[in-house]
Write a protein that binds this DNA or RNA. Structure first.
Lengths: 227, 227
DNA sequence: CCACAACGAGAGCAGTGCTCTTGCCTTTCA
DNA sequence: TGAAAGGCAAGAGCACTGCTCTCGTTGTGG
């Protein structure tokens, strides 16, 4: 019993340790981290790592899922402490950015260019939607209490694709509101990525949080939240 | 004279050919393309490539500059054929997206995660700003003719960082208008990246152009353009 | 015409992901 | 309790990588 659990526990600890070291290597080598170097850091043969992850891509998948969950968790935690939709929106956005600033390479792993030759397995789909769903819920709640700006309904073929999704995740909320939330989400992620990927160099260098706050409020307006 | 040009011409052609093959490899291997494989495709020794590019990063830099110029050129061309600010905005945006869809890996190279260990040299700065500057000019022109929505001026520390930049590139245009244009630019790039990086999977699959058109108009509103 | 620089090829170094074999040691079950 | 089974780590090995160095060759400016 406890003996049987020993193996499993050791295995789980080892798996976590590998991921932890891999995350450190992510910071210097990005997505093409070296499995051999990770193994070296752990004082084990590279082949031994394959007992825990079938391939380097499998290790990456694990890191990706963890990253989605971490940023989702951070945003949800922050949002839980706010009591108006706008405050929740701002709290979630700032939390996401702060997590990204603290873990830039993990952000790049999930919102940056896809790793070449790497196809995201199904396990990543659900964690990947956490932040967007949180924003969606925030807007849905605001819509229910009538503080979302009234706008004409969606037109065009893409509306037919978006409507079932809107109905599934946020029943009762018009697809138009969801579309605007998605647009706002794109803007937020774009802002974070541009900052992290160094595209803000030589422009806003000091007050990046303030700049992001401005962006975040613009996104809120875009989503229909009345400031 | 003509003999002197021979070497130079052959060198220029060879350089272009290497870049061309490298661009093809970019499509399958992304930023960690193999210099050796490129050399093999060209029927030359890998060491010979080093006569043209000092390192793989140098090759990447050349590709990055070309990519910035290509998307900038595409957007400018499209914008030139439009005669109202809104039309110019939409034309530039769609042109950028279409270029990105046609050259997804080059888009990833310039707007995706930074290549680990790669520091963008100064040569990339100017081409990198072409699209944003085009959008800025479009909005500045609209502002001059009075069709930009009037909004309160910027506040906060970042405003002081943004004002000199706004004044330098678009004199007479308030920093607030520039900030909103940047926000719109972030949203556009975010929308393109999300589409290209596969994050739209299982949502909008068919009418992506229509969806992007919606995003683009939302961005225009964000920038203060009256639809 | 000739010294020189540009050039291509090949060998070589240190590193990579991944596989396969070998031996150890824990778990499991008769 | 003892033996079969299986998880596990290690090491060798394969084909690959970026990059350097050396060595002949070839085009070029003085």
């Amino acid at each position: 019993m406890s003996a049987a659990n020993l193996r499993a526990r050791v295995r789980a600890e080892m798996t976590e340790e590998i991921k932890s070291v891999a995350r450190r290597h992510l910071a210097t080598d990005g997505a093409n981290l070296s499995l051999r170097a990770v193994a070296r850091d752990l004082g084990m043969a590279s082949s031994a790592v394959y007992r825990y992850f079938a391939s380097r891509d499998d290790l990456l998948t694990a890191l990706i899922i963890d990253a989605y969950d971490a940023v989702g968790e951070a945003a949800e935690q922050a949002a839980a402490g706010a009591d108006s939709p706008l405050e929740r929106w701002l709290a979630a956005g700032h939390a996401a950015r702060e997590w990204a600033v603290a873990n830039p390479h993990e952000w790049a792993l999930i919102y940056g260019s896809p790793v070449p030759g790497y196809a995201a397995p199904r396990d990543t789909v659900v964690p990947a939607t956490r932040v967007l769903l949180l924003l969606g819920r925030t807007i849905a709640e605001a819509y229910a209490s009538g503080v979302i700006v009234e706008r004409p309904p969606l037109t065009g073929r893409f509306a037919e694709e978006l409507e079932p999704i809107a109905a599934a995740y946020h029943p009762g909320v018009p697809a138009r509101v969801i579309a605007d939330t998605i647009a706002a989400f794109f803007q937020i992620c774009g802002a974070i990525s541009f900052e992290l990927f160094g595209q803000l160099k030589n422009s806003v260098e000091e007050d990046r949080r303030g700049f992001f706050d401005y962006q975040l409020r613009a996104a809120a307006t875009l989503a229909g939240l009345t400031l």
